[in-house]
Every structure is written in C-alpha cells, then in structure tokens.
C-alpha cells in the first residue's frame, strides 16, 4: 500500500505564539495529526510505503526531513517560484499533479484544514482532480483488512467505524500541537537519506494553472473591521470596574439592542 500525506508548512508564529522557536516554519497542526495517524498504519505492516508531500519554500524542507525521521519512506518538497501565490484551486492542482506523478497511490491523507488559511478546500480539490472518493471527519485509523481501511469517524453526534475501499482521499478532523519526539540519531539518518525537491517541470505542471497565474482569486486589499461602536473605557479602581460589569450583566435580557 502506498500512502501520500499532504503537509502544509505554516509560519511558526501562527502556531506557537508564546514560545520562542528558531524555525521559520512548522507543521500545520492538522497535518501533523494526519501524519501521525498514517504512521500508525506502518506499525501494523512495515511494507506500507508512506510519502510526505509539501508545497512550500525551501525554508520548510526540515519538516520533510523530520517526517522521514518519524518513519516516512520518502519526503518531497514541491518548490518553484512559479508556485508562489497559489490559491486553493492552484494548490490542489499542484498537489494532485505531483500525486499523479507518484503513480499507484492507494491513499491520500490530509488534515481538515490549515491553521492559517482555514478554508479546508484543498482536500476536496485534490479528490475531485484525482476523481477519488473523499471521506472527512476522521478521528483515527483502526487498521486494515485486505485492501480496505478501517477508520473511526466522528460526525455530528455519532461515532462510526467505517470500512473504506481504496483508492481514496481522507481527511482527519483533529490537530496536535505536541511536537514529535525525534531522536538525534534518527534525525541524522533522515538528513543523510535526504529529501526530494521537485519543481514545476518535474511534475509536468501546466504553467497556466499554477501560482498567481493559475489562481482564480486575488486579494484586493485589507481593511479594518468596520465598527460603529461607542468605545467606552471603564476607568477607576478594580472594584469600580467589577461593579460596572456586574451591573451590566444584571441588566441581562432587559437590554434592548
């Protein structure tokens, strides 16, 4: 079985705001969860091949080295100046094109969304481009039987055990903020092994479908959130402020907006 896990590198300060970390990029926490779930399958059967796939800047390649150290068989970073500015449509094109190039992929694993963009659109774009079924809201991998994957799904107020026919695209709903514990030795081995760097030509991408050119949305500008509120600053001692708040809350439902 051949699995591709899609990992978005996100700016470290988006995830660990209060901690001091020296790496510019970190795993999107949703994708890290998806990666760990995928690796749990490998523990059941070592013949399973897992490929970590990212589109991003070269500053993020250490994440793919980490993925190797965690147990992935291959790490690929899709890096090309022509990819810059890709919106969700162009991103799903780049990822799906790379997955096609990888050939004979049984399972594509994604996180529910990225912590920065928060659109959750890319996973469905990949599935549509590859004409594969897409199953979301997954909680964990249970195992596999023959060529079927057994998964736990949490959808609304129901918990389901599913048997999924492959090939398919799946998305996990949870995230993890706990950084993987990687020994120095494993990290060194992963570094020696090295990752692959693919550009637009390597995946034979259509130049009209990638980056700014291939994107169908553009950001015109930013504005402040419009507010028509009277900004009252509550002054005085802590006791005065507490009194103000308590009185306001006591009015409760009698307030007319």
């Amino acid at each position: 079985m051949r699995i591709v896990v899609c990992i978005k590198p996100v700016r470290t300060e988006m995830v660990y705001k209060t901690e001091d970390r020296n790496e510019k990029y970190t795993f999107n926490p949703y994708d890290l969860y998806a990666l760990e779930q995928s690796l749990s399958l490998k523990k059941l059967d070592d013949s399973i091949e897992i490929i970590a796939l990212s589109m991003g800047p070269m500053d993020a390649q250490h994440l793919l080295v980490k993925s190797l150290a965690m147990g992935c068989d291959d790490g690929i970073i899709l890096n090309d100046s022509a990819f810059i500015g890709s919106d969700t449509l162009a991103t799903s094109y780049v990822l799906a094109t790379a997955i096609k190039k990888l050939n004979k992929v049984d399972l594509i694993v994604c996180g529910a969304k990225s912590i920065d963009g928060e659109t959750g659109q890319v996973v469905f774009g990949i599935a549509e481009r590859l004409k594969l079924n897409c199953i979301q809201h997954l909680k964990k991998v249970i195992g596999f039987e023959d060529d079927k994957l057994i998964l736990e799904q949490e959808n609304g107020d129901r918990r389901l055990d599913l048997s999924l026919n492959l090939p398919a695209v799946i998305a996990f709903k949870d995230f993890t903020l706990k950084q993987p514990d990687i020994s120095l030795l494993l990290h060194k081995r992963a570094k020696q092994k090295g990752i692959k760097i693919w550009n637009a030509d390597d995946i034979e991408a259509d130049g009209n479908k990638i980056g700014n050119k291939g994107s169908k949305t553009k950001v015109i500008g930013v504005r402040n959130i419009v507010t028509k509120r009277e900004r009252t600053i509550v002054n005085g001692s802590i006791a005065d402020k507490a009194k103000y708040l308590t009185e306001l809350l006591s009015l409760g439902s009698n307030i007319k907006n």
Binding site: F124, G125, K216
Partner: peptide, 20 residues
C-alpha cells in the same frame, strides 16, 4: 460541512475562484 465540500468541488470543476 456539506456546502463547503460541494463548493470546493464546483470550484475545481468550473476552475472558478472560491472564497471561504
């Protein structure tokens, strides 16, 4: 959840811009 998935698929099918 359902609407977002359909919208993302339609965006891909029509190669049309989608804002979430």
């Amino acid at each position: 959840d359902f609407g977002k998935e359909i919208a993302a698929i339609i965006s891909t099918v029509f190669e049309a811009g989608l804002t979430a």
